[in-house]
Design a protein around this nucleic acid. Structure first.
Lengths: 237, 237
DNA sequence: CGACCAGCACTGGTATACAAGCATTGGTCG
DNA sequence: CGACCAATGCTTGTATACCAGTGCTGGTCG
């Protein structure tokens, strides 16, 4: 008898909330995160908050300085590059490994996803969700869907940077078109074309990040080892 | 002014101890992990133990069932395959990305490492350490050394399985020879040869795991969702 | 004898109390 | 006026107390 593994513990809720807020920049890079404050504002004690921060810290989204404070990590260009490299490696390897017969259900899912992406008046957050699902489904298509989890946890830095990029450029249409290009190449079974289309797509995302960096350097880390000052520079509000 | 980021908190010590014990199979798959017992045996309270277990659980090395118990994860073949896939993707992509001029310092490090691997009377644990360092240095050679951290945290399952394999076959010599082969191909700058040698090597590791599985099925998971019984079946002892 | 059921012991989840350490800040002293 | 320094309030780290829920177990009742 399989038991529901879903834990609706308060730690899980806090973790997901905080992670979302960090990724959506609602908690901007550099913001101070006090366990006490967060607990009070979320209506729980320090314990679940603290445990969530530890998890986020392992993902690199939060930095914890003992006896000093916890802070939302600044976007580290080196880590963004790492995430980019890892993601590209995994996604390209997966596409190299596509089966001869594609799962029609997943293909239909992709088709529907792409249609949604082109829906007029689509919100930015909605586009991100569809984008995530698109890439995840591509991985599932090659039978390596569960590797997505690792990619996700590694690409936190990349995601924040991408979001910054889209907030500025505000044109998901170009990316959506690239998605279609990839999808068509997959359907055509043209491995080389799939590879180059995906690589172009992912590199475009990366270039976007670099543009943002030139404009908003304060969100990016310079020295990862340095300890930020306490309360003065806090962006929190 | 850069501050020492090294935290020598008790949580860190507990985490590293537990992780090592899980990876070396000193805590075998399926073993029950009581926060109270562990705390008592390590001389700390539940808190650092608990936080360590949460971290290990995020890595997939431990499973936590609320109000039931925490257990060392059984080796999940699907996760082993995932780790294998991810590792292969990353390492091959890195080797595709080698610079024209190799860092002579790293090359020397690799040469020294390989010499150590062939030292007679080498212990199994020592070989593992060298093996890790070898692959990590290869990544550094391509400038993607920091991506290794993600690979490490994802390949926990793979490592345990590999260890099982080496305990049985007990012949690191074959793997050491493959390492030399890869290294020589890198020096020669033969990208295609590098790729095939590395792929052969990693696949050999994976096949080893499958052999072990046939012999010791009790260490492997069948249904990841099922909750193990409490104290009876415990392998601990 | 067997099925059932209530109590019990143990689990992890959460809240709280205390400890150790850092940074700011305001005052004092040279 | 400036450098120094100690008090103070904040931080995270750790220990402990309590809670809700689970599986086992032994006794009871049919």
């Amino acid at each position: 008898m399989a038991r529901s593994n879903r834990q609706r513990t308060s730690r899980r809720a806090v973790y997901e909330t905080l992670r979302r807020k960090v990724l959506t920049l609602e908690l901007p890079p550099g913001a101070a995160l006090s366990e006490n404050e967060l607990g009070a504002s979320l209506g729980v004690s320090r314990t679940p908050v603290r445990e969530s921060l530890i998890l986020l810290s392992q993902e690199g989204l939060v930095q914890i300085f003992p006896q000093v404070g916890s802070f939302v990590s600044r976007v580290d260009p080196a880590k963004v590059a790492d995430a980019q490299f890892l993601r590209e490696a995994v996604e390209l390897a997966a596409l190299d490994d596509l089966p001869a017969e594609l799962d029609p259900e997943l293909v239909e899912e992709l088709r529907h996803n792409l249609a949604e992406q082109r829906r007029p008046g689509l919100g930015l957050e909605d586009f991100f969700e569809l984008d995530e699902a698109f890439h995840h489904t591509l991985l599932r298509l090659s039978g390596h869907g569960s590797a997505w989890a690792t990619v996700v946890s590694a690409k936190g830095h990349l995601d924040r940077a991408r979001r910054l990029g889209l907030y500025e450029t505000a044109s998901p249409e170009g990316f959506a078109a690239q998605h279609v290009e990839i999808f068509d190449a997959v359907l055509a079974g043209d491995a080389a074309l799939v590879r180059s289309a995906m690589r172009t797509h992912l590199r475009a995302v990366f270039d976007d990040v670099e543009r943002v960096r030139a404009r908003s350097p304060e969100l990016f880390a310079t020295d990862t080892g340095s300890v930020p000052v306490r309360r003065n520079v806090v962006v929190w509000e």
